[in-house]
Amino acid sequence: MAVHLVCEGFRGGLDERVLDAVVIQYHHLPVLMAPSGGSSALGAVRAYLRSRSASDVAVAVEDRDHRPLAEANARWANQTGRAFMWRRHEIENFLLHPRVVLALFNELRALPGLAWASGLPATEADVDALFQTLAAPLLADHAAEVLRDELVRQINAVGSVSFGIPRPAPPAGAHVPGATQWLTTLILEATRLRQTCTAVAGLHPLQGNAITARYNGLVGQYQRPAFLSSGDYLRDMGGHELLAALSRHLHSLGAGARLNQQVLSDELLRVLDRIYQPNILFQPDDFAELAAILAQY
């Protein structure tokens, strides 16, 4: 029996290497990584792996993105499940823990010839303060992404707004459906779609004034000091965007062009791999929970 861990990202990508380091290698698990290329392919990759051998196990973990934290918590509550979701926005958010970033900054300050590194924060609190500064200009964008996700979920709750491809059953004695069956099915699907679109058009949250009100409400909510001071922003906001902001900040201090966003994430992964201990750095610790789930197979 083989155990596969299906993740987002490409072969050799950040997701795969983070999980390999802090879940598989840290816990010495006999688990094979299977990057899916993106969240939309997670299910297909899991299905393919299961189809190769009935005894194989494929456990998948995907980004939460802007979905509610409760949705991720519900998945982790079922330890026998096979599809999990990070409690943080995406894999980069784990690398941006102030203790990890501080450890990297300490290394940079100790390197000869990096005069710009002397201006980097020297305490965990200062790193957090830096991140709050970097996150503040991103809050309006974050609010828009959250709202977009809310609207999509509200539309999907009404029904699919795509024309489906239902295939009618063939009549008795035939191998393929005939004109009668097809016409009935197509008219039914068109009727369903019209009704769904009408219902969606009537949704209050999709009205312009409702969108404006909700957006302003979200911006106000995120701009309250508590969102930044509680540290929730490091969990909920896009890790990719925060990492990009950190990379821009380092360049503004004088870091060379070779220290690009990919190298920065690799450096943070190297530090995370060095200092990571289950349930110390992250609480709750998705990595430790995932390792325990994989270890049961």
């Binding site: 072969r11 050799g12 795969e16 290497r17 390999d20 990919q262 190298v263 690799d266 992964l269 190297r270």
Partner: peptide, 8 residues
Amino acid sequence: LRDAAPPD
């Protein structure tokens, strides 16, 4: 091995 190593 190539895929598991940091790209840099």
